[in-house]
Amino acid sequence: AEDTGVRVELAEEDDGKKTSIALRLWVEDQKKLKGKYKDSGAIEFTFDLEREVPDAVAQEMVESGFFLECDMKLVSKSIRDRVALIKWHRERVVTGGE
């Protein structure tokens, strides 16, 4: 995936079954952000793979003061890429393998 400067990783092991999964997001490269970023650390949150959309979480992060509005799309894209990877991995495990 494209380097957005914002890293999103699994904060727990994915057993491939639960729909709600813990993710951890942090800024790896501040220069990629448009807005002034207050370095608050890694943000851990749970994301429902079936019912939620990355845009909504990014919006909540902006509203909570972690990021500025102008970086919402970047944050959202970073989450979306990770979520797509998790889903792709799950499909591969289900359809491939045994």
């Binding site: 890293r7 790896e28 650390g41 851990e44 949150f45 509203e63």
Partner: peptide, 27 residues
């Protein structure tokens, strides 16, 4: 510890903790 919690009005919890140095890109 330096872990803090932020709860958004929609109910989502954000747990904030320091990022280990090793996880940051060289500037």
């Amino acid at each position: 510890s330096s872990t803090t919690q932020v709860v958004h009005s929609a109910g989502r919890r954000f747990i904030v903790s320091p990022v280990p140095e090793s996880r940051l890109k060289e500037q």
